[in-house]
């Protein structure tokens, strides 16, 4: 693969662009195809309509949050607090709905609370220059704590059943959470590719100081990105609460790392500057598909953790080789196996 040419948002004939995209991702497509064939052979029931629906539903939370995590990672930061935001916003929505008997109030409250956490994260990181790992690690614990405080440590059952269709209803054959996730992918995909936010985010991730000196309002964009991230985590939390018909303060532990894994699996660079929405969609689906298949085969949870870790490692190594940074790795492999 030629490392010296960058995918560009600038025009080239459509045919060339499609061919180029296929070629650039040829190796990836082969891997995915192999994966699908493997799944089919291993789990015959995998490709049934019912299972596809279950799979889509199971990745909806990760999918929603991954949309904004893409921006976070692409700008060179990341956000660990979202797993707590998902739990706490669900709890908050539940408490608000029970207290006011107003569904819109509960939804708005949960989503906005997430946005506020994101705003705080953004200000801590962009203005007070606290390292993103530390800042969001702190807010992760604070918000988790707040979730327990609001719920007094227990799951909050929701009594107003007008709230549940958000999580359990369908539009045509598509479950609502899946539909919302699809809309999010579309919305943030457009944001990334068609608006100035996209290239500016990638420029910040690629070289923040250069972006700043070029006149891009780096601090303001970072705050915006984290606020979006908080809002999306809030939304994901509210939808999850509707699916579970309750607000659970101890849910979604480890979700942040799942989301980051899915993004990295989809080719988003952890050091910033690189990322695509189709990559993220693929990453989310691959992670979900593997988990789903293991569930169908009744693989024990302990082994599932191991398998997911291995897949992530394999994906990152594969990506490095694809980008031509795997030269060191190849040299090493050739030293061990000098034949060929």
């Amino acid at each position: 693969m030629d490392r010296s040419t960058a995918p560009s948002t600038l025009p080239a004939p459509l045919g060339t662009r499609v061919l180029g995209l296929l070629w650039q991702n040829a190796a990836l497509l082969v891997v995915i195809l192999a994966l699908l064939v493997g799944l089919k052979l291993w789990v015959p029931a995998f490709f049934t309509v019912r299972n596809m629906e279950a799979l889509a539903l199971s990745v909806s939370t990760v999918g929603m949050v991954a949309c904004t995590m893409l921006f976070c990672l692409a700008s060179g930061d990341f956000d660990l607090s979202i797993e707590s935001v998902v739990a706490a916003s669900g709890v908050l929505a539940a408490v608000l709905i029970n207290a006011t008997d107003s569904v819109p109030m509960g939804i708005a409250g949960g989503v906005l609370a997430g946005g506020i956490v994101g705003l705080v994260n953004g200000v801590l990181i962009a203005k007070l220059r606290i390292n993103a790992l530390i800042a969001t690690l702190a807010t992760m614990q604070i918000v988790r704590g707040l979730g327990f405080i609001i719920s007094k440590g227990e799951a909050v059952a929701i009594y107003n059943d007008r709230f549940f269709p958000l999580g359990t209803g369908t539009i045509g054959p598509i479950p609502n959470p899946v539909f919302i996730t699809l809309l999010c992918f579309l919305f943030f995909g457009i944001l990334l590719v068609r608006t100035t936010l996209g290239p500016n985010t990638l420029a910040i991730g690629g070289n923040a100081e250069a972006a700043r000196l070029a006149g891009i309002p780096v601090d303001r964009l970072k705050i915006l990105i984290f606020t979006m991230q908080g809002l999306m985590a809030g939304l994901a939390g509210v939808v999850l609460a509707a699916r579970m018909t309750s607000g659970q303060p101890n849910c979604s532990v480890g979700l942040s790392l799942d989301v980051i894994s899915a993004c990295v699996l989809g080719g988003v660079s952890l050091s910033g500057g690189v990322g695509t929405i189709h990559g993220v969609i693929i990453g989310v689906l691959v992670m979900g598909a593997v988990q789903n298949a293991m569930n169908l085969r009744n693989v024990e949870t302990f082994y599932q953790y191991v398998a997911r870790g291995l897949i992530l490692l394999a994906a990152v190594l594969f990506d490095q080789i694809r980008r031509g940074q795997g030269a060191g790795l190849w040299r090493q492999v050739r030293r061990w196996f000098p034949v060929g």
Binding site: T5, A6, S8, T9, L10, V193, R194, T195, T196, L197, G198, P199, N200, L202, A203, G206, N207, E209, A210, A211, L213, A214, G215, I216, G273, V274
Partner: peptide
């Protein structure tokens, strides 16, 4: 290297870094 270019973006993207905002319409590229 440190303060000027965004190394892993295209030459065109780098040239447009400053002007992009004014070339776009309502934020759309």
């Amino acid at each position: 290297k440190k303060e000027g270019i965004v190394p892993e973006r295209s030459v065109a993207d780098n040239i447009n870094l400053t002007a992009r905002h004014s070339l776009a319409r309502l934020g759309f590229l």
